[in-house]
Computed example of a mutant assay.
Amino acid sequence: MIIDSLDAPAPGSSLLPTPAGDVYTDPEIFRLEQQNIFETMWNCVLRVDSLASAGEWKTVTVGREEIIVVRTRKAGIQAYYNVCRHRGMRVCTTSEGKNKTLQCGYHAWTYALEGDLVAAPNLTSMPDVDRQEYGLKPVQVREWLGYIWVCLADEPPSFEDTVLGEVRTRFGEVQSIDNYGIENLKLGESKTYEVEANWKLIIENFMECYHCATIHPELTEVIPEFADGLASQRKNGEIHGASFGSDIEGFTVDGSSGVTALPAIAPSQDRKYYAITVKPQVFINTVPDHVIIHRMFPQSESRTTVICDWLFLPEVVEQGMDISKSVELFHRVNQQDFEACELTQPSMSSKAYNRGGALVPSEHHIEEFHQWWNETMGYQRAGATESPMTTSGGSVTTDQ
């Protein structure tokens, strides 16, 4: 690796500006992100098979809301706000369970798994109460890739245009990701990381590989081209699978062979790594014998929970094949990335970074993420307040 010295960023097209530091530290900006991004878009929250039988439920946090996701007897997977329609107490007060109905512990208002109000003290003396109207408030649900996706918007954006649109950008066609049969894979390992960094820093890190030669020795050994600083995600949606090294047998921590290959991948997908960012909170990584999916859940302007799943063919998991070297590779990548993000977060509030930093050419595609952020936050409407993504620092007020 050749490291070129530069005393100060030079003007011109080689270096593009990054957002001002307070975009990553301002609680008000984070509140608006929760409102305008996470509470309006499709969020991937749970694996479908984590709710295996009727009555099983889990709670998840999306934006500022807590949601119950439940497998019903009649309507499949459904989701509701975890708010009793009587006086507002949490209906479910633990993170998961299995029940025939969902009952509030305050006044015993009781709801069917399908959401309708079915019982309450003295309910028969109130025949005018509409049991559907006073049922749990529903949330839109979709299933895709073996995961449950929810959207809190009253009128959700098109799943095909948004979520599947991200896939088309990175794979060229949805059918290309279908080759991996992700919806039929089984969970081999799952790890949860509590990252003391803003969610946007994590996305920006995942999108580029300028850092790979510096902090990812195991990854660049398996995929040598990453040492040159070019990521598999490229500008203008260029579709690129990063090739394994010539002497590498599998996507493992030591380059040894992995487990049983996924049977339907195309020849162009063999010995290749592909990566997709599905905004706002999902990363999909595909290799010939397994798939790695990250889900991000922002907790504050400086803390993010990341859940990473390693998915394999059912027989690999059921027969107890050794997946440890496959898991260890990306686990180390995660640890290395998240440490870098955590060491970056404190500088976002430094006076030395109040005007932001710079993107080198191999990072220019990150500007597309910044452009999306501006548009989604509404800063590029006619008459909208100037975007903090393009200001030179300092607090930003908005008309949101």
Rank of each mutant, 00 (worst) to 15 (best):
S302C: 13
E375S: 08
D161E: 13
H370P: 00
P388L: 03
Y180I: 08
L313P: 05
R47M: 04
T277W: 09
P157A: 09
R142N: 05
T397R: 13
V278F: 08
L32G: 02
T277L: 13
R85P: 07
T252M: 10
W310V: 11
H331A: 07
Y379C: 01
K191W: 12
E368Q: 14
E133R: 13
L343M: 13
V167R: 13
E39V: 02
C341Y: 02
A75N: 15
F330G: 05
I148A: 03
V327Q: 08
S324G: 01
L187Y: 02
E143T: 15
A264Y: 02
R90Q: 08
G172M: 10
T385R: 14
A108S: 15
E96R: 15
D4Y: 12
W57D: 04
A10S: 15
A382Y: 08
V129D: 03
E221L: 08
I293G: 02
D49L: 01
H290A: 14
K325E: 12
Q103T: 15
V69L: 01
S190V: 02
V333E: 14
L164K: 10
Q299N: 09
S395A: 08
T304M: 03
Q400R: 10
I29Y: 07
L219R: 11
S50I: 03
T390G: 00
R142T: 03
A119T: 04
A8K: 15
D130E: 09
A266Q: 10
C44E: 11
L359Q: 00
V259S: 11
I248H: 09
E33P: 07
I276S: 09
I215N: 12
A231H: 15
L185N: 11
C104M: 00
L359G: 00
V163T: 10
V45L: 05
A231K: 01
S232R: 08
G393M: 07
S246G: 06
I67Y: 07
K325R: 12
A264T: 03
T18I: 09
E56S: 10
V282L: 11
A266C: 00
G172F: 10
E189V: 15
T59M: 11
D49E: 11
D26V: 07
H107D: 07
